[in-house]
Design a binder for these strands. Structure first.
Length: 474
RNA sequence: GGGCCGUUAGCUCAACCGGCAGAGCAGGGCACUCUUAAUGCCAAGGCUGGAGGUUCGAUUCCUCCACGGCCUACCA
């Protein structure tokens, strides 16, 4: 280890502990979470954690010790500890991890405190923690050195513990409904299930390129063919695209499929799932997100995609000239877009999406932008599909799954004619699977990171991902 | 990829029109046995993100580079 790492004479402290015959990096220590301790607790209790502050008073000192459950004040007193242990205490620093044994008491100011009778050093800090009062604010360091963020910023600790609780609640909810949690490949020979640029990697022994998956969809539906009726996967997908407050190159998606169901069932399920998470974890139907308050009270709004355009005077959304007219009437830049769907998408993003604060289902989409969805009964130009918007963000996407192999193949062929940056290859293996018969099914995808953003009031996806993608320093 | 903003001590922040780079906390020393942003005293801490340029003189003005943030774009 280099000299400059051993800051501020802490190297000498390491030497001091060694000179006392004590290994400054300790071993197993049996302890209780500090938050579980109450004043009526009698006898010796053991706790362990990081020393966050030291207030020295000559022959005594108060410290705050933090473990994952919370903080507790501890009191070191020379006449209680004796010469040897008090000398050891003097060689403790803010940031050290220690195991402490003692008795609980309440101070004159009414604070629960552990009177330390014995302690061991479990890990010596040889750097300096960020400042105790302002914490760690530099966002770059917070992302790069998340461990410091977690030590110094309780709000950050809170967001990630909520993320875990949300995921557990989702899993419990689905497991109770009989869904199987499955794991499908993350390395795909042909990327599919979404429209996105993939990451490419290479397998040496097979001498072949593989793609990090952009969605698990096509594999999960192969499981429906195989007779698994309710499956879900919560894991990473990867998209080789720009980074923003809403996009991280690797992100977590929930995808689930229910045989013999449809998009309506998925709409009910989405409502039930998110309502359940709110009830169990937040005990509230309202969440503050930025400047707005989101009301999750049932039932959620439903708007037909086709009806979105009527407020702009667009009666026929295939009328490209009319759409362009609207852009010019609204003084909205078309940004060089010519394609009808791209223009509508842009109009939606600029004018409609920001207003969708309370949960809103957008229903029934054109087939052209929904290559894996089952057509609308009696209208083959539209499909049974919805998207869910909350807080102005797209959070979920679901549809009745297309299970007709012939139509699916035709849709894939049409897709190839589009301007996709994906490899121009059809997943014939998937078509073959459909040819063996896939039950009709409802499928649902939920962007977990975005859902966690909304539920925790985080305005950047980087605040809900422990280690977001960053360029390496220097 | 484009635009704007930022980068000063371990951390949080100052430094007027270009004139010796400053504080709090942390760290070091001393004192102090109920403090909680403990307190008091002493000492230390810097290649101002990097490289050039303008200038007698650059943290400050200019150019390029690196990293980050926000917006935008690609995209759900």
């Amino acid at each position: 280890m280099s000299e400059d790492v051993l800051k501020n004479d802490k190297k000498n402290k390491i030497e001091w502990w060694k000179s006392q015959g004590i290994e400054p990096y300790g071993r197993k220590f049996t302890r209780e979470p500090v938050a579980s301790l109450t004043p009526d607790r009698k006898g010796i209790v053991s706790i362990a954690g990081r020393i966050m502050t030291i207030r020295r008073h000559g022959k005594a000192a108060f410290c705050d010790v933090m473990d994952q459950s919370g903080k507790i004040q501890v009191y070191f007193k020379k006449d209680i500890l004796g010469e040897i242990l008090f000398e050891r205490f003097k060689n403790l620093d803010v940031g050290d991890i220690a195991g402490l044994k003692g008795e609980l008491f309440v101070t004159h100011t009414g604070q629960l405190t552990l009177l330390v009778k014995d302690f061991v050093l479990l890990s010596k800090i040889i750097r300096t923690l960020p400042e105790k009062w302002h914490g760690l604010k530099d966002v770059e360091i917070r992302y790069r050195k998340r461990y410091l963020d977690l030590i110094m910023n309780p709000e950050s600790q809170k967001v990630f513990s909520l993320r875990i609780k949300i995921l557990n609640a989702i899993r419990n909810f689905l497991n109770n409904l009989g869904y199987f949690e499955v794991e499908t490949p993350m390395m795909h020979p042909i990327p599919g299930g979404a429209e996105a640029r993939p990451f490419i990697t290479h397998h040496n022994a097979l001498d072949m390129d593989l793609y990090l998956r952009i969605a698990p969809e096509l594999y999960l539906k192969r499981l429906l063919v195989g007779g698994m009726e309710k499956v879900y996967e919560i894991n990473r997908s990867f998209r080789n695209e720009g980074i923003s407050t809403l996009h991280n190159p690797e992100f977590t998606m929930l995808e689930l499929y229910s045989a013999y169901g449809d998009y309506q069932e998925m709409m009910d399920l989405t409502q039930d799932l998110i309502s359940c998470v709110l009830r169990e974890i937040f005990d509230s139907q309202e969440i503050d997100f930025g400047d707005t308050r989101i009301n999750f009270g049932l039932p959620w709004k439903k708007i037909y995609w086709e009806d979105c355009w009527k407020r702009f005077g667009i009666e026929n959304w295939r009328d490209k000239n009319k759409i362009k007219q609207v852009f010019s009437d609204l003084h909205l830049d078309t940004e060089g877009k010519e394609d009808t769907f791209e223009l509508l998408d842009l109009l939606f993003k600029r004018k409609i999406e920001p207003e969708l604060i309370d949960p809103t289902f957008i229903i029934k989409f054109p087939v052209e932008i929904s290559p894996l969805s089952k057509s609308w009964p009696g209208d083959p130009s539209m499909v049974e599909r919805f998207e869910l918007y909350v807080g102005g963000l797209e959070v979920a996407n679901a549809y009745s799954e297309l299970n007709d192999p012939i139509e699916q193949n035709e849709r894939f062929i049409k897709e190839l004619e589009g301007p996709s940056e994906r490899p121009k290859v059809i997943d014939q293996d998937y078509i073959e699977a459909l040819e063996y018969g896939m039950p009709p099914a409802g499928g649902l995808g939920i962007g977990i990171d975005r859902l966690v953003m909304i539920l925790t009031g985080s305005l950047s996806i980087r605040d809900v991902i422990l280690f977001p993608v960053l360029r390496p320093k220097q």
